[in-house]
Design a protein around this nucleic acid. Structure first.
Length: 423
RNA sequence: GGAGAGGUGCUCGAGUGGUUGAAGAGGCACGCCUGGAAAGCGUGUGUACCUCAAAAGGGUACCGAGAGUUCGAAUCUCUUCCUCUCCGCCA
């Protein structure tokens, strides 16, 4: 979330910038400022009263030590009213702080100056493109047909075991999955990321830390007996490694990568967009996460985008990079680049990666800070990106590389699959 | 799941209800010493919020978390979470 300090010191600027995200912040920001003032005056009152009580208590201690029972009793009487006062004021302060926090988590991150205005996906800017769209034969079919033809993925079997959106990968389909995971992890490692294996379920504090809670409560699977959430992305556990941590400046940047299965309820999304691998409840993804100095985070964002570009290039897929418009960006992001690959048989672009700078928005919730040379603490910037999500990559690979002989595997992947053709 | 022990600062570790934000040790930082280093000596070493134009200074809160008893709680009581040991179960 945004820091109180920033909001109260840059009120009009905050409202203007939020407008780009199509968020009307005028009234909520005014409310925040008002509550913050109340918070301060209340704290002064509580602190003053508490200080008085502390002093009285010390006096009483001294009186008793000196055997001055009467003076002690007198002082005790004085504390009664003081304590009542502190209780009332303290409750008030807690209530104000709670309300303030409730409001703060409802305010999205401010978009970066370079974010284009816009409301929908159509307003996103195409940053650059690459690769070439293959000319498929007229009898080319979408990946769900190919998956069946070569017995790679069994969607119906997944329905039987779990439900829609939980496919079963088989044979070369399963090996392709495993190959892609290793390919992505090895590349990330070579790019200097430390591989970590995080838990797949997290507690509420972690969900809150990265912003899934309370905003996207309904999108996560919730194990109510133990009050744990299945992770929608490895971003959640990996970023939360740094929750409540004060780093040394020389530890920055921190670069982590992690493979995980991802679980998403995808409540409310139905229709033809969800066919085959396009939208699943469980899928595999390799994530990259960086914790960076605020001065360098945009430089790092560019590096991460360039890195993901090398992946789609190695996989020989036609790709494009979008700079997301204000309306299409996530709640917590300041600047996001999406990667899409062209799915030749479906004849549409599929989102396969999203790389974002969250600036200090997540860090503020996480309380992840670093120590500056003058020994002060400052919030870090957090960034992450998919590198990459498997299902749509698989969809594009299958569709784009279909030939009469079978499905061709891109050269870079063959050492990982151990085969060069699916037939 | 059953029984027991315990959770204190960067780490280890003391702590009797009353100047304890917290002894002591280690670590770290700075300074002195040195040609340089080690050793030695000295000094310093939490976070958040508030106050102050700012700095200095001052105040409040925090000894797993929450509530309570008390004039006063790291210290007493209750709840809860977590860790460890033993037993049980088990990949």
């Amino acid at each position: 979330m945004l820091t109180l300090k920033y909001i109260t010191e840059n009120t009009t600027d905050v409202i203007t910038r939020l407008a780009k995200k199509n968020f009307d912040g005028a009234s909520i920001i005014a409310h925040v400022v008002e509550l913050d003032n109340l918070r301060k005056t209340t704290q002064v009152q509580v602190d003053t009263a508490s200080a008085e009580l502390n002093n009285l208590s010390k006096e009483i201690g001294l009186f008793l030590k000196q055997g001055k029972q009467d003076e002690a009793a007198q002082a005790k009487e004085k504390t009664v009213e003081l304590k009542e006062n502190i209780k009332i004021l303290g409750d008030q302060q807690t209530a104000v702080e709670q309300k303030l926090n409730e409001l703060l988590v409802q305010i999205p991150n401010l978009p970066h100056a370079s974010v284009p205005a816009g409301k929908h996906a159509e307003d996103n800017l195409i940053e650059r493109t690459g690769g070439s769209i293959p000319n498929l034969p007229t009898d080319a079919v979408p990946h769900w047909d190919l998956a069946k033809k070569y017995d790679l993925i069994d969607f119906e079997l997944g329905v039987k075991i779990s439900g829609a959106g939980f496919p079963v990968y088989k044979g070369k389909g399963a090996r392709l999955q495993r190959a892609l995971i290793n390919f992505f992890l090895d590349n990330a490692m070579e790019a200097g990321y430390l591989e970590v294996q995080p838990p797949y379920v997290v507690n509420a504090a972690s969900g809150y830390g990265t912003g899934q809670l309370p905003d996207k409560e309904g999108q996560m699977y919730h194990c109510t007996v133990d009050d744990l959430y299945l992770i929608p992305t490895a971003e959640v556990p990996v970023t939360n490694i740094y929750r409540d941590v004060i780093l040394n400046e020389n530890e920055l940047p921190i670069k982590n990568t992690a493979y995980s299965a991802c679980f998403r309820r995808e409540a409310g999304s139905y229709g033809k967009d969800v066919r085959g691998l396009n939208r699943l409840h469980q899928f595999d993804k390799v994530e990259i996460v960086q914790i960076q100095h605020p001065d360098k985070s945009y430089e790092t964002l560019d590096q991460m985008v360039n890195y993901v570009q090398t992946l789609v290039e190695k996989l020989e897929l036609p790709w494009r990079i979008l700079r997301l418009c204000g309306g299409d960006m996530s709640f917590t992001s300041a600047l996001t680049f999406d990667f899409e690959v062209f799915s030749a048989a479906q004849e549409r672009w599929l989102e396969v990666s999203s790389v974002s700078n969250f600036e200090s928005y997540q860090a503020n919730r996480l309380k992840c800070r670093f120590r500056t040379p003058d020994k002060k603490t400052q919030l870090v910037h957090t960034l992450n990106g998919s590198a990459m999500a498997l299902p749509r990559i698989v969809a594009a690979l299958l569709e784009n590389n279909q030939t009469p002989e079978g499905i061709r595997i891109p050269k870079a992947l063959i050492p990982y699959t151990g085969f060069d053709l699916i037939d």
